[in-house]
């Protein structure tokens, strides 16, 4: 590998990264929207902050907080038989779905619950509502952007890998190192999910955050919800959970290789 190839490599690497960043930015571009007819609720804030999985983390945290679910140190979740209702006596669709998912004998690993709930119609519906109001990017676009944003880097690594296999004998260790570094970089980039909120969504989120900080939250229901652990998880992810044993329990990876949602006849089997 000579200096020219190195320059080409550097150019392609920078180009691929710029492309990836642009794509991730572009997916949350402003879109047509319907007026927002009511303040956001906790799960909508969670969705705008971190997408479907954040909603699931938040719901799990909230129901554990309300004694409707129990998590063990091993991250196994069981229902306690309690149901959480809003002041009008209604059960939130996301909560209802989460409770249904936990009705498995022996409990369910928390990470599987999050995966199943994030893909549930309840969270999907919530996401679509936000998309229609121009607050969030369509989930399919976000997923696509996440994959496409790293494609050039994977391509670069593959091309160099091919070069390594077919190419001349010199500089092999250096080339192998570059292949590794490039691929690692691509994988790392993939680990960070793209943002979900559009500029309008970010503004709404900012208002919520501002209201929370100043204590002047206009919708009292949201203020109450945001005050607890679930509010912190909604905004900051599981890492922001204030209770460390619970945080560790909820972030534990399941011990089973296969994933399957209960009951299989419902939602998850179709995806």
């Amino acid at each position: 590998m000579n200096a020219t190839s190195l320059v080409w490599y550097a150019l392609l690497l920078v180009g691929g990264t710029v492309w990836g960043c642009w794509l991730r930015q572009h997916v949350t571009r402003p879109r047509d929207w319907l007026p927002l007819e009511r303040p956001l609720d906790l799960y909508e804030v969670a969705y705008l902050s971190g997408g479907p999985r954040r909603v699931a983390d938040t719901a799990l945290t909230r129901l554990v907080d309300h004694d409707a679910l129990r998590v063990s140190r091993h991250g196994r979740v069981h229902a306690t038989g309690r149901v959480v209702t809003d002041p009008t006596g209604q059960v939130d669709a996301v909560d209802a779905h989460l409770l249904a998912l936990t009705a498995v004998p022996g409990g369910v690993p928390a990470d599987r619950l999050v995966t199943c709930l994030a893909a549930s119609p309840a969270v999907d519906f919530l996401g679509r509502w936000l998309v229609e109001r121009g607050l969030a990017a369509p989930p399919a676009d976000v997923r696509r952007a996440r994959w496409l944003s790293t494609t050039p880097l994977h391509g670069l690594a593959a091309a160099m890998g091919l070069h390594l296999v077919l190419g001349v004998g010199a500089h092999r260790p250096g080339l192998a190192g570059l292949v590794l570094v490039t691929e690692l970089f691509a994988v790392l980039l993939h680990q960070f999910p793209p943002g979900v909120a559009t500029p309008l969504g970010q503004r709404v989120l900012h208002d919520v955050e501002e209201a929370r900080r100043t204590g002047a939250a206009p919708p009292p229901q949201l203020a109450a919800a945001m005050a607890g652990a679930a509010g912190q998880v909604a905004v900051g992810g599981l890492a922001a959970h204030p209770d460390s044993p619970l945080r560790r329990a909820l972030s534990r990876r399941g011990e089973r290789a296969w994933a399957w949602c209960w009951p299989s006849s419902s939602s998850c089997s179709s995806s």
Partner: peptide, 9 residues
């Protein structure tokens, strides 16, 4: 019991 470990604590 392992299912209620955090509760018992």
């Amino acid at each position: 019991r392992p299912e209620i470990d955090l509760t018992v604590e």
